[in-house]
Design a protein around this nucleic acid. Structure first.
Lengths: 209, 209, 209, 209
DNA sequence: GATGAATGAGAATTCATTCAT
DNA sequence: AATGAATGAATTCTCATTCAT
């Protein structure tokens, strides 16, 4: 009896989990298609196959969906960046894997990519704290990588870390944006290595240096 | 009499121009503060010191304000980039002046910067054509610059132009974004030279090359 | 349990039906009092005892209320004309019953009468198709009647059907209009027989014929 | 000098007359096309070639345009009916000329026809007094005609005058309405004689009488 | 008289959120 | 937990009318 009960609880919690998940996925799709403000709860509910009211059992309000998307989906993706970075054993390789993984994840889930780039990134709706938190993950990875590279001798010394971070994130973001605006027509991941090459060597001629 | 008439016409057209301008400026401020979708016509009207209905004498609808902002303000700024670029006489200097001017203009007018970065750039509300048109200005300047640099020998040959463009725009944008999120606390323009340095040399150690 | 469920569903559907009905009735009253264009959704909502927004759960927009009125109320009335006409067994009786029933129904529901005469009849807002459709019911009844009368010998042969239709509808409509403008002060139905007499015999003196 | 002054005054008053007239004509066109409520002052002004504000120099408000249309155009048309009726020298001819003239005038000026039928006729916006006044012209003509006919022996005695009026006006109106809805595709005037025939003889078979 | 820019009240409509079932 | 009908605040936009020039 107890076992059954526990089992039942488990199934229910799975179902609950499912519904929460389904709404989140539906929301991301709708946000990606129409933008946050132009999306309605009704559209999300329909796409998720639940009633409008049901959404409010899982999310405090419309805004909260974006926040939870951020927490659930994005953070998890960003944590995976770290894994890849950790596996690589020199600074340049770490950077290469960071960029590769970033492009890979975003290519794999274009809806997430759109929502992240367009709705989340630039937005003051999400608590700034949240943005900073995640931004920090990236920042820390880059700092670490740069410091390692400087120790290794592969990365030059006179760098202002804050700027390097923007330099790298900016390039990656812009590559993703362009890809999104092209409606994902080409292979995003193949941009990784040439991009990293630019990060490392710049566009300047080595002869001149 | 005729002279007075002409004068009168002139004054009136100035005033009209003023009102259009005042609304546009007010709108940009409001958009910058609250975001496009959270801004209301009433707020814009109030900030511009006109009645709600007056806005519709100058703009087709709320969206049109954004479009006209783009046409009026942004294009003009971008044309000024070209002037600076044209004055410089080698590739690296051209790039340096492009970035300097970009950061200078955006620092000078933070509201424009915010609206441009947040509302315009990523947005499918503006006709894509418009975005592409302006993006093209940037693209052409970069292409030109890179080709010149390659002829001069200051920029390396094996570059995929599309990627270089994103690499540069991305870095600049991100620097601006970070500055915006800091509420303009520091001097944006001073980022120009270090950033260009990164564009040219990358983060890699020259010793290693 | 199931029975209760079914019952519950039934009650709910009745209530829903009620609300739709209530709004429609309220709208007709308001339209009758003020005319379509001078009526506001707020007035209708208030008279129906619902919130403004509720109206949009049942009607696409203000115009749709008129269209649904037409479909729901008017058609049903017109179908009832046919019943009466079918029961009578000679042409003149059929005409008499058509006119009697028409005046009876409109007298019974003056709001419908007003909206029908003023807003619907002359209006290009309703799909012309709808008007034609209903007009056709009348037309068919008259055609049928006339043809029957001609076969019976009670109605003369040399008649242009299209004109006969306008002749009859016109007279009936005008009698209703006059009654409406008098604010329903007299008995409309009592006009039926004298009017039919005019339709049949005209105003000409039989002696002269 | 005085002569010139008078002349000048005359010209001005002609011009004034013209402008008033032009606005009225423009308004009727616009009302005919779109209906009173869906027409805007701006549309009328544009069609009349004057500024919006100018309309208020000649008309108290939008409603007043309809009222003046009624006074100016319609009354004049109705007076012309009388002329024709007066010329005919027996009752049936009088009726025939009334109907002929009615259809002739309305065919000649379809915009007037539309506005009159749709906007004026059924409407409580015009002072009821005005409607009654004009309606009275018609009524008097019909009364007179019927009484004459009864004296002549061409029209039967047992008639309720109020009903006869509606019977005739109704038929004529409906013929006009149908013509309007057909967009004036056929010759309206040719309906006059057959219609009058129906008024006089009805649809009944003479054999039966 | 003529203009037409400006006004702002007013209306339709939308939609996040609630809550009775 | 789930539903979805109901709500009504909020917003955009229109347009008759006014009035300074």
């Amino acid at each position: 009896m107890t076992a059954l009960y526990v089992l039942r609880g488990f199934i229910i919690s799975i179902q609950k989990e499912n519904k929460h998940h389904r709404i989140l996925e539906a929301a991301i799709k709708v946000f990606a298609e129409q933008g946050f403000f132009q999306s309605t709860i009704a559209q999300i509910a329909q796409k998720a196959g639940v009633a409008d009211g049901t959404i409010y059992l899982y999310f405090k309000n419309k805004n909260d969906i974006l926040i939870q998307f951020y927490d659930y989906k994005t953070k998890q993706v960003f944590e995976r960046f770290r894994e890849k970075v950790n596996k690589a054993d020199n600074a340049v390789e770490k950077l290469r894997w960071l960029v590769r993984q970033h492009l890979t994840e975003f290519q794999k889930d274009p809806d997430m990519a759109i929502v992240y780039q367009v709705e989340t990134r630039q937005n003051r709706r999400l608590g700034d704290q949240q943005i900073k938190e995640m931004s920090k993950i990236y920042f820390d990875m880059i700092s670490e990588m740069v410091e390692l590279g400087q120790a290794e001798g592969s990365i030059r010394k006179n760098l202002y870390m804050g700027l390097v971070k923007r330099f790298i994130i900016g390039g990656v973001d812009e590559v993703i944006n362009t890809w999104i605006h092209s409606n994902g027509k080409y292979d995003l991941v193949s941009m990784a290595d040439p991009l990293v090459d630019l990060f490392i060597h710049g566009i300047g001629s080595p002869a001149k240096k």
